[in-house]
Write a protein that binds this DNA or RNA. Structure first.
Lengths: 115, 115
DNA sequence: TTTTGTGCAAATCGTTTGCACCGTT
DNA sequence: AACGGTGCAAACGATTTGCACAAAA
């Protein structure tokens, strides 16, 4: 419950399990990391969160579960929403026989411009 | 070297480290998993492979390093190329100040149709 | 007392790293 | 003897799981 409030009270956010864990700890809510994971998964199953896989290691949970895409800043590991309307995917290929499209994820990978 | 042959002899492939490791073991090429990882990373640095992050856990290496996107079958963990020409992303948002777009990844998540 | 829910210690799994070994200069 | 390259055992970090405890029936 407390975790729920932390997640959704502040508007759209992208959290990693560890980030939420630290936040909870700082807020003197005593939970273990495992509990944070379990809670995040439960919210995800119910459709309140969306799990975003963007780089190999950690995974992000997005409190904005609606259709939209992401910027991902390499090296900084920051994830930023792109409003759904700003990306338009044309010409989606047909799904192979027997399968249907569950979701389309677009990740725009950013790199800090040098100079 | 042997790993290189395994990877590129069979045309376009998507391998996980573990898959390549099993293959090598079966082919009586004695390597450790760590070596497989190191080798995959070296190939990637040199631009012969492309690392694809598609779900939180394992990561895939694609022997097709050119610009193209992927189908990903949930539950089966299968990764399939979509020829580059079959996906067209319109209206890319501008990169935020100070950043440039490094790459755009599109993952079309598939689910087995029931019935 | 049984049953159901909750939280976490410990295990798991993919991945990385530091170092030992060996051939070459 | 110093150097460079290669492979891997062991460490690591993110995530999952099995189980112990507690409240409800």
């Amino acid at each position: 419950m407390s975790l729920g409030w932390m997640l959704f009270a502040k508007g759209d956010r992208h959290v990693t399990a560890e980030l939420l864990y630290d936040e909870a700890t700082r807020a003197k809510v005593p939970v273990s990391l495992a509990t944070v994971y379990n809670t995040l998964h439960q919210f995800t199953e119910v459709g309140l969160l969306r799990q975003v896989a963007v780089d190999g290691s950690k995974s992000y949970f997005d409190t904005n579960a609606s259709e939209h895409h992401h910027f991902f800043v390499e090296g900084e590991d920051a994830l930023v929403d792109i409003p759904g309307a700003q990306v338009l995917v044309d010409k989606l290929p047909a799904a192979p026989e027997g399968y249907e499209i569950a979701r389309v994820d677009v990740v725009v990978r950013l790199r800090r411009k040098q100079g």
